[in-house]
Amino acid sequence: MNRMLTIFKREFRGYFATPVAYVFIVIFLFLTGLFTFYIGSFYERSQADLEPFFRYHPWLYMLLIPAISMRLWSEERKSGTLELLMTLPVSLADAVIGKFLAAWAFTAIALGLTFPLWLTVNYLGNPDNTVIAAGYVGSLLMAGGFLSIGACISALTRNQVVAFVISFVICFAFNLSGFPLVLDFFSGWAPQAVVEAIGSFSFLTHFNSIQKGVIDLRDVIFFATLIALWLYANMLAIEHSKGH
């Protein structure tokens, strides 16, 4: 546990030791603003909520989270520090979880820095703040889901660009799996149960229900299980990569 915390701290500070953190945060805030005000028509709707803000998070994360996660393990593999880390008295689970939590905490900071929007909507009207709080929780859970995918993919390659592209595609698929675009592809031939199962993997569906203000245990369990499974796959990927 202490060692996981040590890994977490090193990793978390690492974001701020390079321009990565600042570039990411600035781009994230810029894009959330852009989507909220221009595409989401925050003012024109004249409604005191943050729906136009949260609506685009799945799409933003799909692009930005792989940029955070791509270096998580591929950099360790490329620079040889994986060998150093794995010969320190640290369990693989401590290392995988510590690094994941650091990336997640960093994303939480970026998300937290959108707080002026929350203040603004309170200044302009009387929003239901519990719905907004639920939106933030849902957004963070979803970010964790995307991050766990990116972390696992990053462990499969030494090349950060490859990690980015593959993570992006997988995140895209998880976003779209509830859409006709994906479901129609299966509904013609696959059993209904399979189609529904694929549809139920959609981040959008789970996020939307949380974002409406209802933190359903099933949605939380969905993201928690998804994160656990991808991190487990991450461990297998590291174990596999060590021999090569």
Binding site: R10, G14, A17, S79, G80, T81, E83
Partner: peptide
Amino acid sequence: GAPAYGEM
């Protein structure tokens, strides 16, 4: 190759 975290 004495790997270490370069940014530290």
